[in-house]
Nucleic acid binder design. Sequence first.
DNA 1: TTGTATGCGTTATCAC
DNA 2: GTGATAACGCATACAA
Lengths: 341, 341
Amino acid sequence: MNGTGVGGTVTMHDVAALAGVSVKTVSNVVNDYPHIRPATRDKVKRAIDTLGYRMNISARSLRKGRTGIIGLALPELSLPYFAELADSVIRAAEERGVVVLIEQTGADRQHELDVLTSERRQLTDGLIFSPLALGPDDADALKVDYPLVVLGERIFGGDWDHVTMNNVDAARAATQHLIDRGRRRIAVVGAHAGETMGSAALRLLGYQAALAANGIPFDPALVVEGGLWHRSTGAACTEQLLDAQVKVDAIFGLNDALALGALHALHARRIDVPGEIAVIGFDDIEDAAYASPTLTSISPGREEIAATAVELLLARIAGGSEPYRRVIPDFDVIERESTLV
Amino acid sequence: MNGTGVGGTVTMHDVAALAGVSVKTVSNVVNDYPHIRPATRDKVKRAIDTLGYRMNISARSLRKGRTGIIGLALPELSLPYFAELADSVIRAAEERGVVVLIEQTGADRQHELDVLTSERRQLTDGLIFSPLALGPDDADALKVDYPLVVLGERIFGGDWDHVTMNNVDAARAATQHLIDRGRRRIAVVGAHAGETMGSAALRLLGYQAALAANGIPFDPALVVEGGLWHRSTGAACTEQLLDAQVKVDAIFGLNDALALGALHALHARRIDVPGEIAVIGFDDIEDAAYASPTLTSISPGREEIAATAVELLLARIAGGSEPYRRVIPDFDVIERESTLV
DNA sequence: TTGTATGCGTTATCAC
DNA sequence: GTGATAACGCATACAA
C-alpha cells in the first residue's frame, strides 16, 4: 500500500533501524519538532528517502484523535453555486493542509439532520454545513459537540461560527440597480411563502426595502413562489408570471439558476431582454457570464466565504475558544447585458 | 468527539462491560458476524444504544488496513461536467457504504502526476482518476500499487480498469445529426493539435468519419484549436472562426462548455441559432437544457460511468483479480433547439 | 458461540 | 537531544 511499491509496508521502526535512532526521533523529524540535531535530522531524512517511508495516517489519527479531514455538507454538487463553493473550499483546505469530504443532503430536511449525527462525523475533525431545509426550529440539532461552521442564513444565534451573505443589503442593491435603470414593475422569482429566516425571505425583504425607499408600491402579484432554486423552477415561475398577464418590466431571480431559467422562458416567448424585461440574478455563478444575454448578478464573495469558513473551522479544531463569530463578506453588483439600459 | 455528547469517548470495552460480554462479541455484533446468539446480539445492541457508542474509524482503519474512503481526482468542480460527475460518484459510493475524497488537479500535468503519489493515497483505499493533461507517455506513472480506475480516454492498456465514453462513435453521431439537418460547413471548436489519444482527438476522428461517410470534404479551416474546454474558450474560438470569414452553417463544440461559449459568441453577433448556424455540444450537462436556445448535445451516460467506476474500484479493493476491464456505456443524442430544422 | 491476548503504527510521557 | 515504553480502539488468531 505504499507509494514506492517496494513491497511490504515501511514503518517508523524500519526508518529508525536504518538511521540508527529511535522511533521517537523519527516521529520528531517527520513532525518538524524543533529541537533536533541537524545531523540526526539528515540521517533520518535520508533513511526515509531510501526506504520510501510514508506515514500511516490511520495510526496517527488513532493516536492524535484527529483525522485531518473536514466535512462539507451541501445540497448537491449539480447546483453550480455549490459546485463552485466546493471548489473554493477544497482549495482553501488544501492550502491549510487538510482534505475535504463532501456529503450531499439533497436539500432534504431529514437528510440535513442526519448529516449532523452521521457516522461520518467520526471521520472528520469538523463540519462546514450549508443547510437549505432546516429552519429556526432545528437550532437544537445544531448543538453538536464537534467544531461546526454554518453557511447561509437559516439559523442564527447558536454556539457555532456563521459565515453568511448580506442577503438583505445585496437584494436591496439588486433591486435598486433595476430601479435606477427605469424599471418599476419588478417581479421576484423563487420566493418562499411563510419562511422568515431563509435566504428567500431575507432577499425579499431587501427587495421590499428598495421599493419603499423609492416610493414604489409593493405588489404581491409580482412575487412568484418557487421551491427549489433550480433553472426549471425559474422557467416555470416566469411562465406563470407571463400567463397571469401581470405588467412586468424586470425580473429579480433570487438566485442565478432561477434567473437563468427566467431568461430561458423569456427567450422561448420571444420577449426581448433587457428591452422588454430586464433580469438580474444572485450568486454570480460562472454561467451568468455566458448566458445569452449575459446575466447581471450579485457576487456574494464566494472565495472569501470559503476561505473564512475553513479558517474558522480550523481555529475551532485547534481548540480556539474565542466567542463565536458571524462573518459577512462584502458583495458586488456585476452588471451585464440583461440589465443594460 | 462522540455523537451523543455524553462526554468521554465510549469504546467497545464500555459496551462489553455494560452488556456483560467480551469486546470480541461486541465487535462481532457491530460487524454483522453471522453466528451470534440472538439474545447476545440484543444485549449488545441495547448497550450500544444506551451508551451512544460509535465505532472509532481510525482504530478500525489501522487494524484492517482500509479506510472506507475512495479518492476522486478530477480537473475542477467548477466545470459543470465534473461537478455532475462528482455528484453521481458520491451517490454511487454512498449506496455502497463508502465516502469520497475529492482532489482537484486543475488539469495540470504535474498536479495530475502528484495526485497519484500524494500522501492522500494513504488515506484512500483506491482512486477514481479523471486525467486531462496526462498522455500515453505517462502510462508508467499510472502503474501504482493501489486499486485504480481511470476515467476518460487519454491512456490505454495498463493494469487498471478503464471507464470511458465512446468518443469516436458519439462524435460521429453528433456530426451525422448536423448533416441530416442539411448542414455541410460544420466547424469544430476546441480541437487539440498534436493530440492522438485524448477526447479531443477521438471526437475529431468521429467528426471526420461522418464527413467521409457522407462525401463531404474535410476543410481544416473549419477546425479551431482551443486548449481548456471552458465556456470562454468556446466563445473565443467562435469569434476567431467568424473573424476568419469562413463559411459556416454549424458548429460542433467538443464539449458543452465550448458549445455554450459558442452560443454566447453567436448571440453577441446577432447570428441566429439554428437559423444561420446550428450548434451541438457534448456531455449533456444540465445547462444545455436551459441555454437560449436550448443546446442539442450528446449524453454520454454519466450516471452509468460513475456507478461503474465505483463498482469496479470496490471490486478491486475487495481483492478481485479478474482481468482489467474497459467499460464503455452507451450514448444518446439529445435533440434540442440549437439544431432544430 | 464466546473470551483472551496480541499487534496494527503512531504519539506522548517520562526518563536519561 | 534522544530513547524506552505505554497507550490510542479495534480485529483476529487461538483457545475454551
